[in-house]
């Protein structure tokens, strides 16, 4: 099966833990080489973040576990890139 090289997640999270902690923790997952977390909107109790992951064959389940452990929920997987080459980046 082709390995996942890039993934973009739309995530709903509480203000705490911060995106700094979340990004650092996701960065420790095996296979993840780059993490980018951008806040898209801020509400009174929650915020929406776009999490972009780059790497080679990282485990989505491990990442989902971390996101859920930080009290966040994945609303949608907005982009997945697999194969030997990244398209359009």
């Amino acid at each position: 099966m082709a390995s996942v090289k890039l993934m973009v997640l739309d995530v709903l999270k509480p203000h705490e833990p911060s995106i700094l902690e979340l990004a650092k923790k996701i960065g420790t997952v095996k296979g993840v080489e780059g993490v980018d977390v951008t806040i898209m909107s801020v509400d009174r109790k929650v915020e929406t973040a776009k999490i972009t992951l780059e790497g080679s064959d990282f485990n989505y389940e491990s990442i989902l576990k971390i996101i859920n452990d930080y009290g966040a929920t994945v609303k949608s997987i907005d982009r997945v890139s697999t194969g030997k080459k990244l398209i359009g980046s």
Partner: peptide, 17 residues
């Protein structure tokens, strides 16, 4: 509970809980 309603998820077993 308020945060659970806002995040649409159970938080008891998370870092927040």
């Amino acid at each position: 509970h308020e945060l659970e309603r806002a995040t649409l998820s159970k938080l008891k077993e998370t870092k927040i809980g």
